[in-house]
Simulated assay, not measured.
Amino acid sequence: MTSADPVPEVHPAPAAPTIASSGGSMLSDEGSTTGIDAEVLKRTLHRYLQKHRAALVAKLDGLAERQARWPVTPTGTNVLGLVKHVAGVQAMYFGEVFGRPLPNAPAWLESEDGDDMYATLDETLDDVVAFHHRSAAHADATIEALDLNARGVVPWWPEDRRRVTLHRILVHMGYETARHAGHADIVREMLDGLAGDGDGNLAEKTPDEWVLWREHLVDVAERSGLRDLGA
């Protein structure tokens, strides 16, 4: 693809088979933490959740309002929208699910029209970040207050698996937050080239070396395509 190529048509990915649909039970009953040091496990899950949160919000550092909102995919994915979405999701999962609703929650939390995936003209970047921090603090308070086996109900999940534990929701939100932090990482790189989260996992290359590296990958892709054509 080049900058002159048309925006690709959106094709939703097919549903991936889940453990539950394959005959397992992990999605409907995550089991008990009996025999495990539950407090250590909770601290570990909580720490990783906080790490992924920080990585996500950090992708806004240095961006202007326009950049933060700029959609870089055919489905409109943008960094500020990802931060807003995760802020709303964590408010619901660590709030309503355990009977601890976030005070003064915004109306868009109940919207099913994608209002949580972008910041409106009435919302600033600082507004979204402040709400993210507020919902994170509320989530942290729930995590600190409850045991891993504390029970909750996710009313928007199917009836057969909406009864959950804090353990289950911590795992779910760790996955959710890490996934969107990865999205934000790619979106930010597409905006201004900033990549990685500073943890040393990104290869150390100069700008010129990255250009050469990408050219190498393009060459590999082109050669692979020619091979498929039998050329």
Results as ranks from 00 to 15, higher is better:
Gly95Phe: 11
Pro101Glu: 03
Ser32Cys: 10
Pro74Phe: 00
Gln50Asn: 14
His46Asn: 04
Asn78Ala: 02
Tyr93Cys: 05
Gly81Gln: 02
Leu45Asn: 07
Gly95Met: 06
Gln50Trp: 08
Ala91His: 09
Gly95Trp: 00
Ser28Gly: 15
Thr44Cys: 13
Gly62Asn: 02
Arg43Ala: 06
Ser28Val: 15
Ala54Thr: 05
Glu30Pro: 10
Thr34Lys: 14
Leu41Cys: 00
Gly24Gln: 01
Ile36Phe: 09
Pro101Ile: 06
His85Ile: 01
Trp70Asn: 12
Leu27Ala: 15
Arg47Gly: 14
Leu45Glu: 03
Leu63Gln: 00
Val79Ser: 05
Asp61Lys: 04
Ala87Asp: 06
Tyr93Thr: 08
Glu30Arg: 14
Ala58Ile: 09
Phe94Glu: 04
His52Leu: 05
Leu102Phe: 02
Val72Leu: 10
Thr34Arg: 09
Phe94His: 07
Asp61Arg: 07
Pro103Gly: 06
Lys84Phe: 02
His85Glu: 05
Ala58Asp: 08
Asp29Ile: 09
Gln67Val: 09
Ala68His: 01
Gly88Ala: 08
Lys59Asn: 07
Arg100Ala: 11
Leu80Ser: 02
Val86Gln: 00
His85Trp: 07
Arg47Cys: 13
Gly31Cys: 08
Val40Glu: 03
Arg47Ala: 15
Ser28His: 15
Lys51Trp: 05
Asp29Gln: 13
Glu30Ala: 15
Ser21Ile: 13
Gln67Ala: 10
Leu60Trp: 00
Gly23Gln: 10
Thr73Asn: 06
Gly62Thr: 03
Pro71Met: 12
Lys84Gly: 01
Gly23Cys: 09
Arg66Gln: 14
Arg66Val: 15
Asn78Met: 04
Val83His: 13
Gln50Ser: 14
Thr33Asn: 14
Gly23Phe: 00
Ser25Val: 13
Leu82Glu: 01
Asn104Trp: 01
Gly35Ile: 05
Gly95His: 07
Val89Leu: 10
Thr44Pro: 03
Met26Phe: 15
Arg66Asp: 15
Val89Arg: 04
Pro71Gly: 03
Ala54Gln: 07
Lys51Glu: 04
Leu60Val: 02
Arg100His: 12
Asp37Pro: 02
Lys51Tyr: 10
Pro74Asn: 10
Ala68Thr: 00
Lys42Val: 13
Val79Ala: 12
Gly62Phe: 02
Thr34Tyr: 07
Thr33Glu: 05
Arg53Phe: 09
Leu56Ile: 01
